[in-house]
């Protein structure tokens, strides 16, 4: 067998303590200004910490999302895939994965579509609820994204853009180690194929699949 090397580490950089503090202050600052500390539960703080520590190195050091948009993307991911008994999207760093993957493997029009819809979601939030999307409570975030999926107050094009972004977030989640092995059931070496195994409502899907 080949030795498993962790290629992912090549893709992470350690930000300085100063940048880390800067980020947290920014997030806290936003929260204080609007008077809503609800999003910054201890869990969110931990996620934010994680966010900084494992920040991906974008391809060619280009970035697609500015910091505000990244905060929105962070929140979109967690609204779609919140923490349950398994990690949330942001806890497996989906937001940075999305940026990395768009730059590395997607066409320019798809990159643009994702940037546009992230900005649009935040704008809609401010227009309708007077708050940035990242600072809405989860129920409000999910309601807004549901309206978007149903096309209520959003265009067909925006629905399409969101579908692309959501699919990429979900791809990022279930191909992450925690997504594939905790949220799903991962079999590296199944040992053979069985055509029938018992299955009930608690049976997890296989996280190990043929082609990702």
């Amino acid at each position: 067998m080949t030795t498993v090397s962790n290629d992912q580490t090549a893709n992470t950089v350690n930000l300085s303590e100063a940048s880390r503090r800067q980020f947290l202050q920014k997030m806290l600052g936003l929260a204080c200004v609007t008077g809503s500390a609800s999003m910054l539960s201890s869990c969110a703080l931990k996620s934010a910490d994680n966010f900084v520590k494992t920040k991906s190195e974008p391809v060619n050091s280009r970035v697609l999302f500015n910091e505000g948009q990244m905060a929105t993307l962070f929140a979109i991911g967690d609204a779609i895939l919140p923490r349950t008994d398994t990690p949330s999207a942001s806890e497996v760093n989906c937001h940075h994965f999305v940026q990395h993957q768009l730059l590395a493997c997607h066409a320019r029009d798809e990159q643009q579509a994702c940037v546009e819809i992230v900005a649009q979601i935040d704008k809609s939030s401010v227009d309708k609820l007077n708050k940035p999307f990242a600072l809405l409570i989860p129920a409000q975030q999910q309601a807004l994204l549901t309206q978007l999926e149903k096309g209520q107050g959003f265009t067909d094009q925006q629905q399409g853009q969101f579908s692309l972004l959501k699919a990429l977030i979900i791809f990022g989640y279930f191909t992450s180690e925690a997504g594939a092995t905790q949220a799903l059931n991962y079999q590296a070496v199944p040992g053979g194929f069985k055509g029938s195994i018992p299955c009930d409502e608690n049976t997890k899907s296989w996280g190990s699949i043929d082609y990702y």
Binding site: T2, V4, Q101, A107, T181, Y186, Y211, Y212
Partner: peptide, 17 residues
């Protein structure tokens, strides 16, 4: 590439543009 989970590839098994 054998025996690696998708998370062990920077682009999760996709090839760079």
């Amino acid at each position: 590439g054998e025996g690696k989970g998708p998370w062990e590839f920077p682009n999760r098994s996709k090839v760079n543009n």
